[in-house]
Design a protein around this nucleic acid. Structure first.
Lengths: 130, 130
DNA sequence: TCGAAAATGAAAATCATTTTCATTTTTCTC
DNA sequence: GAGAAAAATGAAAATGATTTTCATTTTCGA
């Protein structure tokens, strides 16, 4: 009989995925905070969160985001959750942008590049700051 | 008579702009290396490069790029130089992408967001790695 | 149940970037 | 021009996010 697929390391990865379902564009330490509050019986360290995130990124389940504020944020890399962001460079407001410019382009590069994820961010001044 | 516009701080900023004309998506320390080689009479420190970059970003002359490798890269934020990137997540090859998905979207958000710059990157496997 | 392989957390290390601070350079005023 | 105030500079220290190390614990197949 085939062995069941290994469940190794999957517990912390699942916990991180669960956090990312709840907390949008979360940093590693925001994920840890969320886990501490909601999974009180589970003991997790920041190190494990980083390790889980790195694995999830390597397997294209999660994508990293950079809002140019010195920390990496993470999002689920699923079609259903797909969206982009507008980041205010003055007050750091993050707004979700449901438009995606990508579909057009995917076609055009698909012969030479196998896309795992893409990022698209607008930086500028939000309505209050401009 | 009006005072001439201040030239303060402009020397290092100009040197950095010159470097960015020559070196595409350069990191701060790559810029410093370039300045050391090409501007032998000019003494510049990494600190000054960072300061100049921060000012150039704040004034929208330069935009920061994140290729998810732990360092920030910089590019001129000019229409003429405008392009995007495809980053291979395995071998780190960076390819220039001349397609831009942006023009469409700019129109749609222009009433609520004053855009300073935008980033668009594809992450995946290049032709050799896939 | 045993043992190998992998996962874990705490602490230390790393490394890009920022801050501090004393010094030098620039610019404005007289 | 000379002198003073403001800003720029570099070196070194500080910061802070992320990774690595390493000793211990957990998992899972045999």
């Amino acid at each position: 009989m085939e062995n069941a697929p290994s469940l190794r390391n999957v517990k912390s990865q699942n916990a991180v995925l669960e956090a990312l379902h709840q907390v949008n564009h979360a940093t590693a330490s925001e994920i840890l905070d969320w886990l501490k509050v909601t999974q009180k019986n589970m003991k997790v360290s920041l190190t494990s969160v980083y390790r889980a995130l790195n694995h999830l990124v390597a397997t294209s389940q999660v994508k990293p985001l950079n809002f140019n504020d010195g920390q990496v944020r993470y999002e689920l890399n699923t079609h259903a959750m797909h969206h982009h962001h507008m980041i205010c460079t003055k007050c750091n407001l993050i707004q979700v942008l449901d438009l995606c410019p990508f579909d057009d382009i995917a076609d055009k590069v698909k012969d030479t590049f196998s896309i795992q994820y893409h990022n698209f961010e607008l930086f500028g001044l939000c309505g209050n700051c401009k």
